[in-house]
Design a protein around this nucleic acid. Structure first.
Lengths: 189, 189
DNA sequence: ACCTGAACACCGTTCAAGT
DNA sequence: ACCTGAACACCGTTCAAGT
């Protein structure tokens, strides 16, 4: 395995980086279900090397998303301090939709990841739900909510909209979000 | 080809029916992306026979959905005569979600079918959108709408909810619909 | 410690040959 | 008129053998 020793061998490190770079390019162009064989080929390594570094597709994807996730969660923390709780919640929903737009098929993997504790994406899905919970709590306290809702409801809306953006268009996804947020937020917001 | 002559040969007719029966069972159990090879095997025919009867997966699926679609559109016609336009629109949304729950993966094929005129499912998708348009027009006339919306918006909501039902749960899909319908329908409804 | 690539078990789709 | 099944071009994943 690649993880056992302390410093990876120089060629292993290079291979890992090339694999990540090509995976990003291929996932961007062809979606998260693109051929792993093709990624290995483009990275100039045998398919076995890809598997040695990343035991499965989700592990590869999870590594690619790590930096992006950090930026997203930083944004979530910022929004928790914003003056208007209702506007913050709406901005959060749009931020996650933009995040999920990185790769076609990502919305499905995220939706799968919330409930699957074994998924490499599980942790980040839980974190998204937590931020949703906190933003909702703030909005409720400010009297900006028209009805009950949880972080999971927000998670579902974000993923549904991200999926609609993939299947139909970003505009159509925006209209779905508008409808749902109209149902959630009190007009006083 | 199978369509050229007037009456199909008896064995061809039998094969076609067995293929449809097995396809329904397999799609129900494994979703719309299940192996066609497996369906042919279960139907006791060679894979070439499946392709002779149905040129692609969507054609097979479209034939399976024909009866189900008729029932759905009859329901839509009924709802257009119902006293409360707002309740009718909500009932329609739930009817389509239940329809899409037949096979895992169907929501994605429907969402694809609206824009793809070459799809065997295109016609039924357009019909769904039309019914949504008419139900919305009735609701607007009755003053039951809070904001602008089109049949396509309703189509997007139905499909998004059907997809959430597949990925998360029917309950979660229901909560999404509740949010969006709250945003769409005026409280006077 | 890491990499290679053959091996295995699957796919979808086409089409020449049969009946 | 219809059916068969080999053929082709792809997959994901594993693992013995190499360096």
């Amino acid at each position: 395995m690649t993880e056992s020793g302390r410093r990876p061998r120089a060629d292993a490190r290079r291979n890992r980086e090339r694999l990540l770079a090509e995976a990003d390019a291929v996932f961007r162009a062809q979606g998260t279900n693109a051929s792993l064989e093709g990624i290995a080929r483009r990275a100039g390594v045998a398919i076995g090397t890809l598997y040695a570094h990343f035991p499965n597709r989700r592990a590869l994807l999870g590594t690619l998303l790590r930096q992006r996730n950090e930026a997203l969660f930083d944004r979530g923390a910022d929004l928790l301090d914003q003056p208007s709780p209702a506007a913050a919640l709406t901005a959060w929903v749009h931020a996650v939709i933009a995040h999920a737009a990185a790769y076609q098929g990502l919305a499905a993997m995220l939706a799968e990841g919330v409930d699957d504790e074994a998924s490499e994406l599980h942790q980040s899905c839980v974190q998204m739900t937590d931020i949703g919970d906190r933003l909702i709590a703030r909005a409720r306290q400010a009297g900006a909510l028209r009805r009950d809702a949880t972080g999971v409801d927000i998670f579902a809306l974000m993923n549904a909209a991200a999926w609609i953006a993939e299947q139909m268009s970003a505009e159509q996804a925006g209209r779905l979000v508008d409808l749902a947020m109209d149902g959630l937020l009190a007009p006083t917001a």
